[in-house]
Write a protein that binds this DNA or RNA. Structure first.
Length: 622
RNA sequence: GCCCCGGUGGCUCAGCCCGGUAGAGCGGCAGCCUCGUAAGCUGUUGGCCGCGGGUUCAAAUCCCGCCCGGGGCUCCA
């Protein structure tokens, strides 16, 4: 028996004329059914009542998932070329109907033996369309084979979850003592069972709006974000920092297109593994898709390059703004997961596993350093290392050495067989205020794509070889870094500390508040002096009370606030309100400049993204 | 994609259950206050009650569809 099962918004059908002698009696009336699972059914030779029962039971298990309780059994011969005799078929169909009613389904049936016209609207979700093949008991053996094939695939994907300790010992997750390692526990739980509960809005969503960093864009697709001047500054600074670090590491920065031709031979095969997750667009007679990583562009570019083992490892980098993934509707949240995001993506092409392992360590350290510089310390994230069983057997010490560099126990995921294109992968994961985890940096050793893209290098013997490819995002998506920083700030607030951004990312580093308009001129002088040292300084020249302006500066997370009045004109000691401590420190201007310069040393610099005078600024939110 | 909750001036929200003239606080604007470190006072502006359809004499309110947001699933090479 074959059943084409369609979850439908509605179906309209109308019997037109009898086709065969055994056709049932029916009225030639149009019928409409809504919110229904339609079962186009072909009864094949050898099917019997047991098959009918089994078919309905299988369907029912599925209906529970969909939370639908209404079916239409629609005889449909065209599904099979091995049909049984019509009279037997009708019997089996009736048996299906009886079974369905028996187990409490709201059951409808289209008449058997008629030529019918129909219109159907099928829902868009992945489970909406399914083909079932139900075989009679005799054929059970054959079916077993098929199942075992499926089970094998399933088996391949089965993951073992463990905790790898620094001494190299691997413990089952239940046996590990998570005392003092609550984040690792939350991360492990998130990865393994994904159980979580939360009623509140993610804190970073409220913050990104209130601080005028970013917001949803109702005029776009979900997961496409609008960035206000302050947010653009923060993002752009992080982008610059990551890019600088990766270039320092030795990668060559390139730029590749954001859209690709579906028909390109190297891409077609790769894409077949990731169906229906891209944005697709048409241009003239071509079908294009938007990139979901910088891999395509870089692979195609390196495919055309000529290089030998002497130039390896060969490192290529791109800040992929944007990468697009049409994530499922329910998964797109704030800045945690977007449909359009900025992905720093660095590939390294290595001669062999030995070289790859060496490079892997270099990049592991690089990623830790980059996160640290962004403002996420090792306490803010947890590591996961994922590999195949085979790889572990041969590389125990290597994997343990990664954990040692990380300095703490890590979560490991072990695959019995390789089913991705990589044999080893690690990722750093931020655990947020809702106990959800989001991956930041990651690196992988890819053993497949060099062949797929026909990327070759020339070895010592002058022979062409496929390299190993390492895929690394040194920071993870830039937007996700902003998410992590905001969530981290919120955590600190919960712990009684003032929430803030790292000084080098604070849109306003120093705010000067003149007591009254009589003191504005002096404020301007101080601001100019700070500005020439490349600090971001602004002046709150609005005619509001002092208390109110101080309050607003604090709510904007301004790290240093200086109130300027008559005393400051007469003396060069400035009352600097330090957000970190909440105290007012008497400082000379030069002392403040030195302090800030020391803290932001080595970080990218950018000017204030807004008018210097607060009276000249629009309000983007609130 | 599925299930649950929500969408009301720029922002946060009340009103909806039980249909009958749209409300508050914040913000904006104007005026006063010229101020010593987290909200000064007064006045005023501002709303196709997310969009479309239906029921009704009458819809922010009831019903249906869609869009957007949040949560839970699923998914996450």
């Amino acid at each position: 028996m074959r059943i084409l099962q369609l979850h439908s918004n509605f179906i309209n059908y109308k019997p037109i004329q009898k086709e065969i002698a055994v056709a049932e009696e029916a009225e030639k009336q149009e019928r409409r059914l809504e919110e229904i699972v339609v079962l186009f059914t072909a009864v094949e030779e050898g099917d019997n009542e047991a098959v009918a029962k089994k078919a309905i039971d299988e369907v029912q298990a599925f209906l529970e998932k969909l939370k639908v309780n209404r079916i239409l059994i629609y005889p449909y011969a065209h599904l099979s070329s091995n049909l049984t005799k019509p009279a037997d078929a009708l019997k089996v169909i009736k048996a299906m109907e009886a079974r369905a009613k028996e187990i409490g389904l709201e059951t409808y049936r289209a008449p058997f033996g008629w030529n019918k016209q129909f219109t159907i609207a099928i829902k868009g979700h992945p489970l909406a369309e399914q083909l079932r093949v139900i075989l009679p008991a005799e054929a059970e053996v054959k079916k077993e084979e098929k199942v075992s094939e499926a089970v094998k695939a399933e088996e391949k994907m089965k993951s073992l979850w463990r905790i790898l300790q620094l001494d190299g010992e691997i413990l089952p997750v239940e046996k590990f003592d998570f005392k003092g390692r609550e984040n690792l526990e939350k991360f492990a739980r998130y990865e393994i069972s994904k159980v979580r509960a939360s009623e509140q809005m993610p804190p970073h969503v409220t913050l990104m709006k209130r601080l005028e960093i970013a917001d949803y864009e109702p005029g776009s697709d979900p997961g496409n974000i609008r960035w206000y001047p302050k947010g653009r500054l923060i993002k752009s600074l992080i982008e610059q920092l990551v890019t600088n670090k990766v270039i320092e590491y030795g990668a060559m920065e390139v730029e590749t297109p954001i859209m690709y031709d579906f028909g390109h031979p190297s891409l077609a095969d790769y894409l077949n593994r990731f169906p229906a997750r891209q944005y697709i667009l048409k241009s003239e007679n071509k079908e294009l898709f938007l990139r979901f990583a910088a891999c395509f562009g870089q692979f195609l570019l390196v495919h055309d390059a000529q290089f030998s083992y002497k130039q390896m490892p060969l490192k290529v980098y791109e800040l992929a703004r944007y990468s697009f993934r049409r994530e499922q509707r329910g998964e797109v949240v704030g800045l945690r997961r977007l449909r359009a995001f900025t992905m720093p993506d660095c590939h390294a092409f290595c001669t062999d596993l030995e070289q790859a392992k060496k490079e892997f360590i270099v990049r592991f350290k690089l990623c830790m350093q980059i996160l640290e510089e962004i403002g996420l310390s090792k306490d803010d994230y947890e590591a996961a290392i994922r590999f195949t069983k085979d790889f572990y057997r041969e590389n125990k010490r290597f994997i343990t050495s990664l954990a040692k560099i990380f300095g703490r126990s890590v979560l490991v995921e072990i695959w019995k067989k390789r089913f991705f294109y990589f044999i080893l992968k690690w990722d750093f994961n931020f655990v947020d205020n809702q106990d959800k985890a989001a991956a930041l940096s990651t690196d992988q050793i890819d053993v497949e794509n060099a062949k797929r893209y026909d990327i070759v290098y020339v070895d010592e013997k002058g022979e062409k070889q496929h390299p190993l490819i390492m895929h690394c995002s040194p920071s993870g998506a830039i937007e996700r870094c902003v998410y992590a920083l905001l969530e981290k700030a919120y955590k600190e607030q919960k712990n009684g500390k003032p929430p803030m951004l790292p000084l080098w990312l604070s849109p306003t580093q120093v705010r000067i508040i003149p007591m009254s308009d009589k003191h504005l001129e002096h404020a301007e002088k101080l601001a100019d002096a700070l500005e020439t040292q490349h600090l971001r300084v602004d002046i709150d020249d609005r005619t509001l009370t002092l208390r109110k302006r101080v309050r607003e500066a604090e709510m904007e997370w301004v790290p240093y606030i200086i109130v300027v009045g008559q005393k400051e004109i007469e003396s060069d000691a400035l009352p600097v309100r330090d957000r970190k401590t909440g105290k007012i420190r008497k400082m000379k201007l030069q002392e403040l400049i030195s302090e800030i310069e020391e803290i932001v040393k080595g970080k990218p610099l950018k000017p204030l993204p807004l008018p210097k005078h607060l009276s000249r600024r629009p309000q983007f939110y609130g």
